[in-house]
Design a binder for these strands. Structure first.
Length: 591
RNA sequence: GGCCCUGUGGCGCAACUGGAUAGCGCAUCUGACUACGAAUCAGAAGGUUACAGGUUCGAAUCUUGUCAGGGUCACCA
């Protein structure tokens, strides 16, 4: 039983004893640093149950608690805040328990716990990944790891958008202008090569439009009638009909893209447990729609199209099947969700990592699934995140105004290298070790930069003013980790025994921060927010650095204190490593 | 226009979900390496939380309205 629960029970008990009034709950907060004390009971909410002067009530409760709870050694009241001083042993006991637990903060899922499927990335296979995908991937991966740590089984997945008119555009352009180029013949990454043809299509298409307009067509007519577009549409029809040469071309070009993506994912450090391809799922959902009509969830219009009436829920009518009987995006998403639960029967909920421009889509999707009566529909969450904008505005693949994911990661690594070489602390490291380190630091900076921001907020990314390596950054936290490793290497005596000591003020503060870790993971999981983990880690590191500056570890003469401090430093390092693993950030032994 | 998201020192972010005098980092100014690693630490300066009402012991947080920025309202995905 932790101290807060003990106090809660005793406060209720004391309240009853003092005023013969029951209170349902007690509100706590950490005592602010300018006051004496460790835990604060907020008196104000109690006034609802017992009118009176909050300061007086605080005094009464304070006396009662000191008398009835051994661990409370003193108290003071400021306005309506009752500050309680907690005995050191409470904190050293906590530490000894936490220190014995290698998975401190993590909860292992129980066998019958429902799993969560986290979808992220889900790129189109006609162009390379860019900065927007980077935010998506980092968020999705991290949230998956956090949910896992919070005590649930997780499947990471993505739905690969491998078919459709945009894919045909790249294919067509390659056919017409490619001269048989391959990744091997050009030395280009496959996704880059295919992306070039997507751009090429757009350029040629625009020329055709201009030509048609010069011949007297309106812009709208020209856009619809351009031969290239018509050819692409025909190609899509052939693909759907299973035309052998088209399908073969499609397979070839997609395989180029996949091998390119694989490299990018590997560098980014993300992974997936299972994959879904749109070419396999785009026909799903049609039979569900038929069943939905019978259930009265959907209705058919005169032209044969099928709709869902959501006006009673404050939304519009939404189409779920075209008049020609073909599926739309929504149909497919309904079918895919159902398919996933069939494939993985232990899945009890899903998280969709998709940009906020699709907020409405997911609102509708979840509502339809609810109307169809799936119990897991209550456990669906759209992890919606803000766009990443450049100073020049939105990124547009076709116009080449994107920040490429591979290039960005490379730049970050190069910057890390430059800084490291200036500082020159890596004597004895091999080239290979150095390069790995630069990557750890560079990507750490990038990932932390993106993940520390609340997902809902948009990010303005200026490639010119590079990502920081000082202050509230990934490298700052990595540096603290490396520094602790250096201490541990020098601590050549046996420091394994559990000790109980009188705590230095800085030690106590650090222990309080450490104690917050398990709850922070739960909060981050409940809120789908890696930012909470990032901010927690930063606070922990700041607290440690302050401790480090004020208290000598290896120079301490009292043997038990010295042991405790080494253990404490090591536990902080382990927690940094653990928290950063939830963000997908590695941690260096030296830097 | 309807609906949704965002607005916090010059810039980038926090605020334990309604609690104390709104914290932190960049940038600016002062100090600290013959010290366990200065990618660090200690300090100064910088705010009417976009604006105006409301709810209550108490509001950056909830509510109404206004303003600004973004998104979305396809038989596209």
């Amino acid at each position: 039983m932790n101290i807060q629960n003990t106090i809660e029970t005793k406060v209720k008990e004391g309240f009853l004893a003092l005023y013969t009034v029951e209170i349902p709950s007690v509100e706590f907060q950490a005592t602010r640093k300018e006051f004496e004390g460790d835990i604060t009971v907020v008196v104000f909410p109690m006034l609802r149950y017992k009118k009176g002067n909050p300061v007086q009530i605080g005094e009464d409760l304070g006396k009662y608690l000191v008398a009835h709870v051994n661990e409370i050694t003193n108290y003071n009241v400021v306005k309506g805040f009752l500050n309680l001083v907690i005995e050191d042993s409470v904190y050293t006991n906590f530490f000894n328990a936490a220190n014995a637990n290698a998975d401190f903060g993590f909860i292992t899922p129980s066998a019958n716990e429902k799993a969560v499927m986290v979808e992220y990335s889900s790129p189109n296979t006609n162009k390379p990944l860019h900065l927007g995908h980077v935010r998506n991937n980092l968020l999705g991966y991290s949230v998956a790891e956090i949910i896992k740590a919070s005590g649930k089984n997780v499947y990471k997945t993505q739905i690969i958008n491998d078919r459709g008119i945009h894919i045909c555009k790249s294919m067509l352009a390659w056919q017409k202008y490619g001269n048989g180029e391959t990744p091997q013949s050009t030395g280009l990454k496959g996704d880059k090569l295919v992306g070039n043809y997507y751009v090429k299509f757009d350029q040629e298409y625009k020329k055709e439009i201009a030509q048609l307009i010069a011949e007297g067509k309106t812009e709208e007519e020209a856009k619809k009638e351009a031969p290239l577009l018509i050819a692409a549409q025909q190609m899509l029809l052939k693909w759907e009909a299973g035309d052998a040469t088209i399908v073969s071309l499609w397979e070839t070009m997609n395989s180029w893209v996949y091998s390119g993506f694989e490299v990018t994912y590997k560098n980014m450090g993300v992974n997936f447990d299972t994959l879904y391809y749109e070419s396999n799922t785009y026909l799903l959902g049609k039979d569900v729609v038929a069943q939905g009509i019978e259930k009265g969830v959907f209705f058919k219009k005169e032209d044969g199209s099928v709709w869902c009436d959501l006006t009673e829920d404050g939304l519009d009518e939404k189409i779920v099947l075209r008049s020609d009987g073909t599926a739309v995006y929504m149909t497919q998403d309904i079918g895919t969700a159902i398919q996933r639960v069939k494939d993985f029967p232990d899945v009890g909920g899903m998280v969709y990592t998709v940009g906020n421009e699709q907020d409405y889509h997911f609102q509708v999707l979840f509502l339809i699934l609810k109307k169809l009566g799936f119990d897991w529909s209550q456990q669906l969450h759209h992890l919606s995140y803000g766009m990443v904008d450049l100073p020049s505005g939105k990124m547009k693949s076709r116009e080449g105004t994107v920040v490429d994911a591979d290039e960005l990661m490379l730049e970050m690594t190069t910057t890390a290298k430059t800084i490291s070489e200036e500082l020159g602390k890596l004597e004895g490291y091999s080239e290979e070790e150095k390069n790995e380190l630069y990557e750890t630091i560079g990507l750490g900076a990038l990932k932390y930069f993106i993940l520390k921001v609340d997902p809902k907020k948009r990010i303005l990314f200026d490639p010119k003013s590079s990502v920081d390596f000082q202050g509230n950054t990934g490298p700052f936290i990595q540096y603290t980790y490396a520094r602790i490793q250096s201490i541990i290497k020098k601590a050549t005596f046996n420091y394994s025994k559990a000790v109980t000591i009188d705590l230095h003020e800085k030690e106590k503060e650090l222990l309080k921060q450490l104690e917050l870790y398990p709850d922070t993971i739960q909060q981050a999981a409940a809120n789908y927010s890696p930012a909470l983990i990032a901010n927690y880690t930063y606070d922990l590191v700041k607290e440690f650095n302050s401790f480090y500056q004020n208290v000598s570890i290896l120079g301490e003469e009292d043997q038990d204190k010295k042991i405790f401090r080494v253990q404490l430093a090591k536990k902080v390092a382990d927690t940094i490593k653990s928290a950063f693993s939830l963000l997908g950030i590695r941690v260096p032994e030296r830097m």
